[in-house]
Structure formats: C-alpha cells, structure tokens
Design a protein around this nucleic acid. Structure first.
Lengths: 76, 76
DNA sequence: ATGTGACTTCGAGTCCGTC
DNA sequence: AGACGGACTCGAAGTCACA
C-alpha cells in the first residue's frame, strides 16, 4: 500500500470530540481518565495528530454518550 | 489504558464495507486494488479482524463513494 | 476469489515530565 | 487547564506464501 498523508477525517473527528467533550463540561484530563485513556494521547486526538483506531473511536463515543458515527460528521 | 476486547463497532464497519462493496459489484481483490490497499489486509477489515484506523476508514469510504460516517451506522 | 498464519516495521498508545 | 517532548512497549499497517 502507498504511504499517504494524514486524512481530512482525522481533523473532523478532532473538532467533534473537542466540541462534545466541552459540551459535557469536562477537562481533557478528567475525560481521558473517565474513559481510561492516556491524557496526552487523548490530547493528541483532539489536535488531529493521532490516527485513532476504530476501537478507540468507539470508546470515546461511549464516554461522550453519543453514537460513534456522529464523530465523523463535519459541522460548519 | 486498559486492555479491552475488540469493540462492537469493528464488526459494524466490517458488515458495512462488505455490503457497500458488493453493492458496487466488485471483488475484494478488485476493490482493494482500486484503493491501493493490500487485498489480504482489506479482507481482514471485512472480517472484523483488523482494528482499522480513521485514515483507512476514510480511504475505504472514498473508494466506496460514500460518506465515512455511513460505515459506522448499524443496519438491521 | 477469499481466508489464514507468519512475519517486519513504524506508529499507536503509555508514562514521565516541563512550559 | 492544555500543549508538547522524550523514551518506551505493543499492536496497527502492510506483505507474502500457501490453502
């Protein structure tokens, strides 16, 4: 397979997780702790730096109490 | 982070990619080739064996000509 | 045409810290 | 509170031979 650049979708997910987390009024550290994920890793996801896996998408969505597919929908 | 089992979402994605690919009337082989992905790797995704990343979700959705979030929605 | 096991490599994911 | 860095471990990514 060819080596590719980080996708667009990554930044969409980044923006979405941040918005939903803030809507819940939680800090990155508290939220990361709640879903049992490393805070520096989770921060990287919100910055769009991490190529997060489907299992982790699910885990984050669960913590956010939303349906996973909502994290992939771009808002304006 | 705690070690977890493969998530449910993984199998939802698996079923979806398979359905959408078949709807396009393509073999795994041809489709994998079209999106420049190894066919055995792609096959593993359809079988829910691979914890596929967001970048690869995007790449597959592009080949399927659908919006990425559709791959995460469970059908009955 | 698809599945599977074995394999290497590089980034996902963790843990320490500082600014 | 959050960004970021270094050093680490382990699994995703990617490939192949064979069934």
């Amino acid at each position: 397979m060819k080596r590719t650049h980080p996708g667009l979708l990554r930044s969409i997910v980044a923006t979405n997780v941040r918005r939903y987390r803030q809507a819940r009024g939680l800090s990155q550290q508290d939220f990361a702790n709640e879903i049992d994920m490393d805070r520096t890793y989770y921060g990287g996801v919100e910055r769009g730096e991490r190529n997060v896996s489907i299992d982790n998408i699910e885990r984050i969505a669960k913590g956010l109490e939303i349906s996973p597919h909502q994290l992939l929908i771009a808002r304006e």
